[in-house]
Amino acid sequence: MLIPCPYCGERGADEFTVIGAADPMRPEPDAPMEAWVEYVHVRDNAFGPHRELWHHVHGCRQWLVVTRDTRTHAVHGAEAARR
């Protein structure tokens, strides 16, 4: 699989680690406990395009948001997580 790193170009997936969904946002400090449980433990099992956090750990060490179709592994793009 190739990840189009915005800093390094297309690189093999073996240079990266992935931790899963990119969209759950860390709650505000005063958010209720339920919001934190949701953020840490609850994930959708996407069937189709999925925004994921990948870390170019053996490359530029940037965290990326990669949009990957979970059905086909087609990668629709990657951008820096820091935006």
Binding site: T17, R26, L53, H55, R61, Q62, W63, A81, R82
Partner: peptide, 13 residues
């Protein structure tokens, strides 16, 4: 190290 990079780039960019 990875955690620090995550906290910086993703949470406090």
């Amino acid at each position: 190290m990875q955690h620090l990079e995550f906290c910086h780039q993703v949470l406090l960019p």
